[in-house]
Amino acid sequence: MGNLKEIRVRIASVRSTRQITSAMKMVSAAKLRRAQDKILKLRPYANKLHEILVNLSQSLAEKQAENIYGRISVPEKILLVVITSNKGLCGAFNSNVIREARRLIYEKYPDQHRNGNVTILPVGKKGYDFFRKQNIKMLPDSSDLLNDLSFNNAVIVAEGIMKSFVAGEYDRVELIYNQFKNAAVQNLTDEVFLPVETCHPDESEAAMPADYIYEPTREDIIEELIPKSLKIQFYKAVLDSFVAEHGARMTAMHMATDNASELIRDLTLEYNKARQASITNQILEVVSGAEALKG
């Protein structure tokens, strides 16, 4: 009988776990829908703006015009913006980003790392918690951004990064984040934020940049357009990661719910078997007792 009770208790506990995971799945699905809407609408705008920016900074490079965001030097001082989530329970979402960040540090920038010139800017608690324990320079984390993600809040962080790039504190800024593809798939992305890249790798027109007329003046355009585009790019990265997080969590919780259901099925089968066995045993005892009495 002890075994029976044990199984009963386990079934009950798995059942309540399933209830929780399935509720979390619902919550993530709702949040995902809302956030997904935002990113899908922002994307074309951000992509076009980026395209214009690439064209612009390319023709600027031709003319050797001053572009404070396009300063290309030997990357000595690196800033890695690691975008993770504040909460866990979303599968490999965070560990993928962290693994990529570590790969960059130890394989792409080992010399800079040795000289202590690699800095991490964590956006999201999970990345912060991980890199806090490592021997790597780190800026104060901007995890609050994820709690209240709006364009204006993202701009504050982006402006901070841009300011320190212009001031020469960093030569290169890269964003590492999960790009949202669909609810089940996230693309791990490593993107150069600054300096503004001057050529598109897969564009044939890149060979002959257009000779643009700038209105009102080139300086005004640079002053206005480049920071705007960078802010949009940064916001898009954070938003992408935010949407991907909910997608990842929804998928993870869906799996967990499925697993729980399967476990309940197995346990129920086991429970029924054990119950039947104990009934058979009891009958056997009664029958053999009666046989013995007949003598």
Partner: peptide, 13 residues
């Protein structure tokens, strides 16, 4: 300003 066919490349705010 107006943009017609074969306008020169321009970027304007």
């Amino acid at each position: 300003f107006q943009v017609l066919k074969d306008h020169a490349p321009i970027i304007s705010t």
